[in-house]
Design a protein around this nucleic acid. Structure first.
Lengths: 181, 181
DNA sequence: CAGCTTTAGCTAAGTAGATTAGCTTTACGG
DNA sequence: CCGTAAAGCTAATCTACTTAGCTAAAGCTG
């Protein structure tokens, strides 16, 4: 059932999933859904946790055996790729973890952890590593988000811009300790 | 009335504004709102266009008389600053322009135009300039968005990370032509 | 096997928000 | 003074979410 909700989210956007549409797809009446999930907010939480966990797996798989620039590239391209193939689920990954839900916290932490570890391969530690992780995430997420809403209107191949952005990140992270405010 | 909708959006999030809440604030019954705006989607469009126009003004004002690194810094800090002070309106700026609405197209174009012009000060033209603008926007937007959802959980001053991100952008844009995929 | 229990469906009913239709009041210009 | 436009209102409809309580089937359990 969550599976169908995820497919629906990918098709219509996370914010537009409704129990009505989900029930229709499953060939079931709306109230029956309450036997499986505790209302719309709970469904959102389910999708959120599963999506975070899924992207953590994807990123982890993409970076095994790689380091530095190689790991950075793999991370960036796997990230965008997954986001484009699963837009609704991707939206769900960009959500504050519910502090009261341990599974949510765990899933959030794991996804960030993969990035953190990959970037640690640049020899970054402490605040440097945190800043690098945050900046990497920000750049990639921003790109994905703007691309998803059709924010890149100018006549220029978006894939090429993305490669350029990743190259810029490589450059910056390569001399991160010299990148100071 | 749009003003009140904007304040409401800033308080509860763009997605959570409702005609019911807006009417309550204005001390008016819900159907009365239809004398001023043609339904909830139309209200969203109004807020969107005004927000885009407002941020274009803010960015333009921030960059007058500045160039290169100086302009980049001013742009980045003004951007984040405005976004933090007006979270709901900021969300509204990150919306595909409705191709059928000229005012929306105009407002979108103006905001991007300011950034484009500021970055053109680095001597960038053509695809270089487009890539630079897109990358800059992506990085800043991603940071703002993650910050807004509470995505930066680690114990590290977020302001400092932002300064670092801007420094990285300065570095990359400074040698943008050498940043190739 | 008979009976109990769990599961997963259902209908009915209530609530909230958006929307439309149509009425009333008020202010203002001619 | 009168007509009209602006801005409010109530009543009613629609869609979506939610809860309560019923029922049938499947699966144990003695």
């Amino acid at each position: 059932m969550v599976i169908e909700a995820e497919l629906l989210a990918d098709e219509v956007g996370l914010a537009n999933i409704s129990l009505a549409a989900l029930a229709e797809r499953l060939g079931v009446k709306v109230p029956s859904l309450y036997k499986h999930v505790d209302g719309l907010p709970a469904l959102h939480r389910l999708v959120e946790v599963r999506a975070k966990s899924e992207i953590a797996d994807v990123l982890a798989r993409a970076t095994v055996g790689r380091s530095r620039d190689d790991a950075l590239d793999a991370l960036a391209f796997a990230y965008r790729d997954w986001a484009r193939r699963h837009p609704g689920r991707y939206e769900a990954t960009v959500t504050a973890p519910s502090a009261d839900d341990p599974s949510s916290m765990e899933a959030s932490g794991r996804a960030v952890g993969v990035m953190f570890d990959a970037l640690a391969g640049y020899g970054l530690t402490g605040d440097d590593a945190i800043d690098a992780t945050r900046s990497f995430r920000a750049a990639i997420h921003g790109f994905i988000a703007l691309e998803a809403v059709g924010g890149f209107g100018m006549p220029r191949d978006v894939d090429l811009t993305f490669r350029r952005l990743v190259a810029a990140l490589r450059l910056s992270l390569g001399e991160w300790s010299r990148v100071s405010a």
